[in-house]
């Protein structure tokens, strides 16, 4: 067995980013993602890379904007209220087609909310979040190992599509420790050359980075181009399925909720209830085909989230009345137990 290291989720994100050659990290204190900023303040300086504790989350995302347009791999991290502040910058990055990785360690909201893990930012993450017609790729790992692995892929995906990539975890995943194999194989992507960066026009014609398109029809054309890009992202959909083939009911959950659902599934199967699980790993683009395929023989779905029903809307759109879609969730940092979910399954069946 490979040598494993016991690591916190937040730290695994940082170490994964460093392995992916992240050149610059910009952060601002907010709980429960602070361990990452603290970790990067040490590690990035040791590695002679860039670390700045910015004066605000707005500044941090714009520092990412600046670093990214030079071709450097850059990231920022925050928790829900701070991510709200970053939305302006994320919209600009999407408009300017700049790659970058943004980690959201979700906490309870709205407003200042609390610091418990929560999944209330699903809509914000998957619908773009800021103003204008754009999307970000959204990755939702459910273990510390997967956080370490996926952040590396996130940088590749950001470069592949020239688009910001959001990693959506929550306070529980960020704070928990699990063993991590630091040599774990991670998918490598074929990346286009960065022939759009600004680094001084000494050897070429001057370029510009912009999201302003005032000429008649120009912005529409630009947005159609972005739209094509978002459609192409479907080739990189990721999804985990367990025991769907013989299932009488399938749970659909992401991140920490999927972990609870895995426990619930084990518990239910011990009681003879055939439960399956579909875990979207990319939340945008959403794993439509996996879910559609399951509707061929599964007629009951239960979506479990730590919110009042966000991803369930995507599931309903896909299933489109081909099966019953139920929802179980708790808001404000409430985490369901496996027993609660099994009870809900029994109620439905």
């Amino acid at each position: 067995m490979a040598k494993r290291v016991l690591m916190k989720g937040n730290i695994a994100i940082g170490e994964g980013a460093i392995k992916a050659n992240c050149k610059a990290y910009f952060g601002y204190p907010i709980t429960p993602q602070n361990d990452l900023t603290a970790h990067m303040s040490k590690r990035m300086v040791e590695l002679d890379r860039v670390f700045i504790q910015s004066e605000s989350e707005i500044a941090a995302i714009n520092m990412v904007f600046g670093a990214a347009l030079t071709g450097a791999r850059a990231m920022t991290s925050s928790s829900s209220p701070g991510i709200s502040l970053k939305q302006e910058g994320i919209s600009y990055m999407a408009g300017c087609e700049l790659p970058g990785v943004i980690l959201n360690v979700q906490r309870g909201g709205p407003g200042l909310g609390n610091i418990s893990g929560a999944q209330g930012d699903y809509f914000q993450a998957t619908r773009g979040g800021g103003h204008g017609d754009y999307r970000t790729l959204v990755l939702a790992p459910d273990s510390v190992q997967e956080m370490y692995d996926l952040v590396q892929e996130a940088f590749d995906l950001a470069d592949k599509y020239r688009n910001p990539v959001v990693i959506l975890i929550d306070g529980v995943l960020g704070q928990m420790m699990e063993p991590v194999d630091l040599e774990h194989d991670v998918k490598k992507y074929k990346l286009p050359p960065k022939d759009w960066i600004l680094d001084g026009c000494k050897t070429r014609e001057p370029r510009s980075i912009q999201s302003l398109y005032m000429k008649e029809g120009a912005l529409e054309e630009h947005n159609w181009k972005l739209h094509e890009k978002y459609k192409k992202m479907k080739q990189d959909i990721k999804c985990e399925t367990q025991h769907v083939d013989d299932a009488e009911i399938v749970l659909v959950a992401f991140g920490i909720s999927a972990r609870v659902c895995k426990s619930a599934m084990q518990l239910a199967r011990k009681e003879g209830i055939k439960v399956g699980l579909i875990r979207p790993i990319t939340l945008f683009p959403f794993p439509e085909e996996e879910i559609l395929k399951a509707t061929e023989h599964v007629k009951k779905f239960l979506v479990v989230e730590m919110n009042l029903g966000q991803m369930v809307e995507d599931v309903k759109l896909i299933i489109n009345s081909k099966a019953d879609v139920h929802f179980y969730g708790r808001p404000g940092g409430g985490l369901s137990s496996q027993e609660e979910i099994v009870n809900e399954i029994s109620r439905i069946l």
Binding site: T31, V172, Q175, M176, M177, P179
Partner: peptide, 11 residues
């Protein structure tokens, strides 16, 4: 073994 550690973290 498989293992998870989850701390309380407070204000």
């Amino acid at each position: 073994k498989s293992v998870t550690f989850f701390p309380s973290y407070g204000a």
